[in-house]
Computed example of a mutant assay.
Amino acid sequence: MRSFPPVSYLAGHTPQSRVSRYFLVCYLLIILLLSFYPFSGWRYNGEPIFAFYSYPRPYYFTFFDNFANVMAYVPLGLVLVQWMRRRWFAWPLSVAGGVGLSASVEFIQQFLPDRVASNLDILANGAGAVIGATLALFIGSRSWQRRWLVFRHNYLVPSAISEWGLVWVGLWYVTQCDPSVPFLGVVVEAVALPQPFVSPMANARLFLDLLESSGVALHLLGLAMFVAILVRHQRHVVPAMFGTLAVGLLLKLLFAGMMLKRAEFFAWINENVVIGALAGLLLVAVCARLNRRLRALLGALSLGAALGVSWAWPLAPQLSATLSLFRWQYGHLQHFSGMAALVGDIWPYGAIAMMLATVFRLWEE
């Protein structure tokens, strides 16, 4: 039977975990992006600004709205308790923090034309914070703490980048939750009216295909190298890279099943994605045994090149043109897709920054 170091040893001989703090920062970012997207059209409607707090229950909200609002704040309540290290005041402050954040968000939403400020949302969000904070009291036990410390000790690089990177990988999963965007894709082909553009190649169709395939390959290689720099031992590098990709693929399948019409289940994949993914996997296999700094450099260059592909893409995607693929209502779809797109825009820059910091050894070991 394999033995692990006792939790007292790990707690005393390893750096204090900051993963809850990092997760809190990223999750707050997601909540704010989802709550205020598309960040335009701000106006004052003339109603008393605090009146909505006492409005009667709105009749037009559905079970989906309420369930989503509850679940959205469960992770927030959980991580707030963990961040405060389960002190006696952690539970009430976490619940109060969740309710306060929700009340503030709803207050600001009344100035957005595409949003409706609702006291029911505050109640649902508060219920989610209560559930999350209560759940944290159980999973924050000594046995769970020991599991995390053992996992970090055995599998992650002993550096601050490992915990930041782990949270950043979780943020990458958010970018894969929109099934109208190709898996690992950095571009989205417009399906609306034809858009004229100037192609540097005589065959414009081939130019678009090459851009899409190369974007997928570069994205895959950059992600794999990013995951690789977080892993402590070489023997775990390949399973970590392919495990991350497998979870991302499962998420894409899950959200495709939930959001897309049955006939459009595979709208997120095409031959260019397959070709790009195969090319990316081949590159990963060739580069898997590079040392950590070279992986970081290669990953940063790959994601930088993938950004270049997205900038060179000449077509502008239109959400309204993809509505026929979905079963969701337009409002839900707009907010969800907007959040995934915004996180996708931010994610490469954070990953590149961490990998460059690894190259220049800016992280404390």
Rank of each mutant, 00 (worst) to 15 (best):
F4G: 00
P6A: 09
V7M: 07
S8D: 15
S8G: 12
L10N: 02
G12Y: 09
H13F: 02
P15W: 01
V19N: 01
S20K: 03
C26G: 11
C26I: 11
S35L: 07
G46S: 03
P48L: 13
Y60T: 14
Y60D: 14
T62Q: 13
F64M: 09
N66D: 08
F67C: 11
A72R: 12
V81D: 06
Q82I: 00
W83D: 06
M84N: 11
R87V: 06
P92C: 04
V95S: 04
G97E: 05
S104M: 08
V105W: 05
F107Q: 06
I108R: 02
Q109Y: 03
Q110F: 06
P113H: 02
D114M: 13
D121L: 09
A127N: 04
A129F: 01
V130N: 00
T134L: 15
T134C: 11
W144R: 00
P158C: 00
A160N: 03
A160W: 03
I161V: 14
S162D: 02
E163T: 12
G170Q: 02
Y173C: 10
Y173T: 07
V174L: 06
V181G: 01
P182V: 02
G185N: 00
A190V: 08
A190M: 04
A192Q: 10
V198F: 13
A202E: 14
A204D: 15
S214G: 07
V216D: 03
M225Q: 14
V231I: 13
V237C: 04
V238W: 09
A240H: 05
M241Q: 12
L249D: 09
L251T: 09
A263S: 13
E264I: 01
A267C: 13
N270P: 06
E271P: 01
I275H: 07
A279L: 14
L282R: 12
V284D: 02
A285F: 05
R293M: 01
L294K: 10
R295I: 06
A296F: 07
L297W: 11
L297D: 08
G299T: 09
A300S: 13
W311A: 05
W311M: 15
S324L: 07
L325S: 03
L325G: 01
F326E: 10
Q329R: 14
Y330T: 07
Y330E: 10
L333S: 10
L333T: 13
H335G: 13
S337G: 03
G338E: 07
A340K: 10
L342F: 05
W347Q: 10
P348M: 01
P348D: 14
A353R: 06
